[in-house]
Every structure is written in structure tokens, then in C-alpha cells.
Simulated assay, not measured.
Amino acid sequence: MTLNRTPPTSPKPQPKVSVDRADNTASTSVRFTPHESTLQQCASAPDLSSEPDTDCNAYKKRKFDGDSATASTGLTRAMFDTFSNKQKAQFDDLMLRINSIIEQNIDLKQSVEVMSAKYDEFLSRISYLEAEKKADNKLIQQMEDKIEHLQRNMKASEIEIRNVPKSEGETKDDLCDLVVNLSQTLNINISEANLRDIQRVKSKGNSNAIIVTFSSVIIKDRVIKGVKMFNKSKDKGNKLNTTHLKLKNNQPVYVSERLTLKTQKLNYLARTQHKNYGYNFCWTSYGVVYLRKKTGDPQIRINSAENFLKLKPANCA
């Protein structure tokens, strides 16, 4: 069956309008393009001459733009809410930490106040203990001086004879004979009646020292003075020795007054160091150590090691 269809009408050629503005007057001329009238038309060709519905496109564009703005606003609000919640959480955590620090500072302040009070108390106690220590040291020094004075008085009538060999089966009578022989050598009249006690004591070396206690200090002083004069009058090889005590072996004998333990230490220090400090003479008298630079100079009494050591800077400069 043959269908007779009417072909669609060809679109009318649209005139092209040109404007001539040379003389500022508008003139319209219409020209037709030859190929526009020869376009083939088909049944399925769209109507290209129809104008698009501008109102519909505008509506769709406005609708699309509105959806994008709404979505963007919602996303921004969600991001802001997330950021705000995060900041709030951080702020809450920061406030907790600040409060914890404040509490710690309060506890620390209280601890510092307690420690400061204890420190002040300790300072007070230390000051009290230092004052008490000074008082105790002063009292101890006074007691030591008193003991030293008592010991000197007890030993004031005693002499010490050193470097005398001990004989086998020695008795006190033998020791008394030694002291009598010594007095004869020194031209001093001493008998056993003048001796209150005599004994040997342990000392360094092979021979123990002989301690003689006289009945008076006067006799002791005579013996000490006699020994000094005897040694001064003799040459070095003939000073007081064991032959003067009627003993066989010829070895030097040393006689000195009995010293306390403290004075012995001072005497040893003085005898070993006095020349280094510029002092030529060192001796003891009545249990006290003395120093002297040269003949005619005043004597210096040494009561303690501190007194002796003070002489070093002044004389070794």
C-alpha cells in the first residue's frame, strides 16, 4: 500500500539585515543565501527554527543553583558543627588540665609553705645546736685544761730516764741504786729517802723508760738542772751515759721531766719542726713547751698545736 505523504514545507529563507551607519541612518537590505533554499528536509528532522523555551531553562537553572547552594550550606554547617564540637572538646580538655594544674599549684604552694616552715625550724635548731656546740667545746676545752693542769701537778715531781738497758732480774732496789749513782755524778745529795716511787714503763725501743717520783718538786728541779749543767760542761762523746750510772755498756742516757701525753705531742712537734720555723731553741719547763729564736729573744709558750702552727706563716714567709 502506497502512502502518499506531503513533504514538509521548507523553511522560509530568513533575510539578513545589514546596517549601514556611514551616514548615521539606518537602511535595511535583505539578502538570501542560495544554498539555504536547497536544504533537504526529512520527516525526522527536528524543527531547528523553533526557539528554545527560555523560561523553562531559566527555571531549571535556578532550581539547580538553589540545590547546590543548599547542599553547600548544609556541608558548611556540618563542617562548622564538627569543628565547633572538636574545639569544644579541646576547650573542655584544656579546662580540665588547667584546673588540674591549679590544684597541683595549690598543693605545691601548701607543700612549699610547710617546707618553708620546717626550713625555718631547722635553721633555728641548727643555730641553737651551733651555739650549744660552741658552749660545749668551750666547756670541754676548760675541762681538758683542768685535767692537763692536774696531770702536770701530779707529774711535777717526776723525771724520766731513757735509754738505760734493763738488767736481768732487775728490782726496785737496783733502780734506786741507779738514781743514787746519777745524783753522785751530778754532785747532788740524793738518798732513797728522797724517792717516793720508781718503776719502769713500757716505751718504744728495746729499753723501757724509768720513771722516778721524788718526794718534792725541788729535788726534781735540782736533778734536771744538774743534768743540763753536766752535759754543757762535757764534750759530745763524754756527755751523760751509762758508765756514769756504773753500768757496763757505754750508751747515752737522757733525763727529762715527766710530761703529760698532750705535752709530749707538742714537744715532739716542736723539736721536729722548730728549726724550719726559724727557732733555734726548744725546751720544756714544768710541763710546758717553749721556743726561742736566739739568745736574748723572748720565749714563746706553746699551749696547743694551733699556737705552734700559727708561727709558720710569720716565720716562713
Score class of each variant (00 low, 15 high):
residue 94 L to R: 03
residue 59 Y to D: 13
residue 162 R to I: 07
residue 270 A to Y: 04
residue 122 F to V: 15
residue 96 L to N: 13
residue 173 D to S: 14
residue 207 S to F: 05
residue 129 L to G: 03
residue 48 L to K: 03
residue 90 Q to P: 03
residue 40 Q to I: 11
residue 17 V to N: 13
residue 50 S to Q: 11
residue 24 N to W: 00
residue 191 S to E: 10
residue 280 N to D: 10
residue 231 N to H: 02
residue 240 L to I: 02
residue 215 S to V: 06
residue 190 I to T: 05
residue 209 A to Q: 00
residue 145 D to F: 01
residue 82 T to M: 11
residue 248 K to H: 08
residue 93 D to C: 03
residue 95 M to W: 09
residue 230 F to M: 08
residue 77 R to Q: 13
residue 231 N to M: 01
residue 13 P to H: 04
residue 55 D to S: 15
residue 271 R to H: 14
residue 282 C to T: 04
residue 220 K to E: 06
residue 97 R to P: 01
residue 291 L to I: 04
residue 8 P to D: 07
residue 217 V to E: 05
residue 14 Q to L: 15
residue 233 S to G: 14
residue 263 T to N: 06
residue 227 V to W: 00
residue 31 R to M: 05
residue 159 I to E: 02
residue 291 L to W: 02
residue 218 I to G: 06
residue 105 N to A: 09
residue 153 N to P: 00
residue 24 N to Y: 07
residue 63 K to G: 03
residue 287 G to D: 07
residue 75 L to S: 14
residue 162 R to F: 09
residue 219 I to F: 09
residue 24 N to E: 08
residue 200 R to Q: 08
residue 241 N to T: 01
residue 60 K to A: 06
residue 108 L to V: 01
residue 245 L to F: 02
residue 102 I to T: 07
residue 273 Q to W: 08
residue 91 F to G: 05
residue 251 Q to D: 11
residue 112 V to T: 15
residue 166 K to T: 11
residue 32 F to N: 07
residue 25 T to R: 12
residue 274 H to G: 07
residue 275 K to D: 11
residue 9 T to P: 08
